[in-house]
Computed example of a mutant assay.
Amino acid sequence: MTTEKLLADLGLTFTILRNNLYMDAIPFFMGKQVFETGEIVLPAGEGRASFLPREEMAEAAVNVLISKGNEGKPYNISNIYSYDYMEISVHFLIYPAKKFLIIRFR
């Protein structure tokens, strides 16, 4: 039984916010070794994800929750763009003394 169905069956008023992956969790996915070894080890292969900053998800949640007509509706909160880890690793270029190697496995 899904959460939405359970809430509806109980007669509760609800709005479901389905947040996608938080952008601030990216370092946890890469592992703590990333700055020591420069290796980004991923089980993602060529996969992509639509990360979004926590602050933007919070803003979306506030807008849904303060507006009318959202009762009983689910909202998928996600970025319209999906990133792969090659794109994300470019942001590590701010660490010029370190070279990063992406190791992909499935």
Rank of each mutant, 00 (worst) to 15 (best):
L12T: 07
L12D: 09
F14W: 11
T15Q: 04
T15S: 15
T15C: 07
L17K: 06
N19L: 11
L21I: 04
Y22T: 00
Y22F: 15
M23L: 14
M23S: 06
D24I: 01
D24Q: 02
D24C: 00
D24V: 00
A25I: 07
A25E: 08
A25Y: 09
I26V: 15
I26D: 15
I26E: 15
I26H: 11
P27D: 11
F28A: 12
M30S: 11
G31P: 14
K32C: 03
Q33A: 13
Q33D: 14
Q33W: 15
Q33N: 12
V34F: 08
F35W: 10
F35P: 06
E36F: 07
E36N: 07
T37R: 08
T37Y: 14
G38T: 06
E39A: 07
E39S: 04
I40W: 03
I40Y: 04
I40V: 12
V41I: 09
A44F: 15
A44L: 05
G47H: 11
G47S: 10
G47K: 06
G47M: 12
S50W: 00
F51P: 01
L52K: 02
P53A: 02
R54S: 11
R54E: 03
E55N: 02
M57G: 08
A58V: 13
A58N: 05
E59K: 02
E59P: 01
A60G: 01
A61C: 09
A61E: 07
A61F: 03
V62S: 01
V64P: 00
L65Y: 10
L65Q: 11
I66G: 04
S67T: 13
G69L: 05
N70D: 13
G72C: 09
P74E: 15
P74N: 15
Y75N: 03
Y75Q: 04
N76H: 05
N76F: 12
I77Q: 01
S78G: 04
